[in-house]
Simulated assay, not measured.
Amino acid sequence: MQKKVWQWTGLNEVTSTTAERGQPGTGEAEIRIVSIGICGTDLHIMSGHAGFGVPPLPLGHELAGVVERIGPGVDGWQPGDRVCIDPLIGCGVCRECLAGSKHRCAQSGEIGLHYPGGWQEYLVAPAANLYRLPDAVSFEEATQAETLHCCLGGIDKLDIRLGCHAAVIGDGPTGLYYVQLLKAAGASKVTLFGMRDGRLELGRRLGADVTVNLRSPDAAAAEPEAAETQDIAIDAAGNEASLKLCIDLLKRGGQLLLFGLPGHPILADIQAVVLKELTLSGSTNAPQVWPRVLELMASGSVQVKPLLSQRYPFEELDLAIAFARNEPDEAVKIIVSHS
């Protein structure tokens, strides 16, 4: 049996091809992919800036679909079940995996980053990586559970007190999710800093109390006024300027969550961190929060649909990639779906 596949084949190149459908082995299930989110990480991999992944490889790690077949030893799943997929796979036997922290496993890798991903009609994945979709969550929305789970893992590392003030630097999808999560967790005032008016307006609709366009002439006046006013700052941009802004904004004793990835070493004012007694936390994956993510989505506590900005059929995945690369201001989150 054949399946259609889009493969990353070289520098910023994707190619449509066909391949044999794999038979699910012990503990595995075959998923018919329904919807895929296009992530900035996909673009970084294709441009050669990520430092991992080797072409030819079907990318795609924001995935939702339907169980098609199950392999031996799989309990609790049957064909037709609606699922999203945790792309992270650990070795399963090391101390970190056994403690539920497979993201810290030295041998871990991800579907769509290190292993074949969802840019194909069917994908074989470990059944342990599947999560059942609530009826209220669509396939398109479910693609965002992967991104949202990373953000929720970061939130769990913060001590968020009711009535606190928080700043989010970065108006990409993760910044917009962090705005919502901070409000849901009890922050009374959330300020979103970004560089795109459309994204900042969306941030206001999703709960940001104040927005600041860092490209605006008014931003220079707003930053000193906001200095040392925030209990929490989240760097969802990951560059030297965003890190400096976070440190400047935080009160003494404040908390700084580092989430955005610079891709290379950057300078930080460690003296300010020490003298202000700031708490720094880094955050990536968080395997333990997946069930809570789906509850947040199903209850409407976090809205995903407003971020879904463009939709493409699977046959035009190459056009979706091109749009994401060429129109970054317009592309908040692009969804590719099978008909």
Rank of each mutant, 00 (worst) to 15 (best):
A227L: 08
D159Y: 12
G163K: 12
A298D: 12
E225Q: 13
P79D: 06
G170L: 08
K157Q: 14
I111E: 00
R204E: 13
S101E: 12
D135E: 15
R199L: 10
A322P: 11
L319E: 15
R104P: 00
T26G: 14
P58K: 01
K276F: 07
G238F: 12
G51M: 06
C164Y: 13
A268H: 11
I335L: 02
L123I: 08
A64V: 02
E121P: 07
G40P: 10
V124F: 07
E316F: 07
W77D: 05
F323S: 15
E68K: 07
G100E: 04
W119T: 06
M46Q: 10
I70N: 03
S16W: 12
I33S: 02
E146Y: 09
K4P: 00
S337K: 04
F52I: 09
E110K: 07
T143M: 06
I155C: 10
A99K: 08
V5D: 09
M1R: 09
L158W: 03
A220N: 13
T174P: 05
N129W: 05
A106P: 01
P173M: 09
P87G: 03
Q255M: 05
H114K: 09
P173D: 12
T174D: 15
G71N: 06
D159H: 11
Q255I: 03
K189N: 15
G80M: 02
Y177S: 11
E30W: 08
G154E: 09
E315G: 03
W6V: 01
Y115S: 01
A221Y: 04
L182A: 10
P72M: 08
G100S: 01
G27P: 08
T18M: 02
E225C: 02
R82Y: 07
H61I: 02
G203S: 04
A298P: 11
E141I: 04
R215I: 00
R292P: 05
H61E: 03
V67I: 11
G154N: 11
V93C: 08
Y131I: 00
V74S: 01
G60S: 04
G170A: 10
E13I: 04
A187T: 12
K305D: 08
Q271H: 14
R95I: 13
L133E: 06
L256Y: 00
F139Y: 14
S339F: 00
G238S: 11
Q23R: 15
N129R: 04
I232M: 07
G198R: 14
S281R: 14
R205T: 14
I334P: 02
L11M: 14
R104L: 15
A208H: 06
L307W: 03
M1A: 10
G203Q: 04
L250K: 07
Q107N: 14
K102W: 13
P79A: 02
K3W: 00
L257Y: 06
A29M: 13
R205F: 01
D329P: 09
R104H: 13
E20A: 13
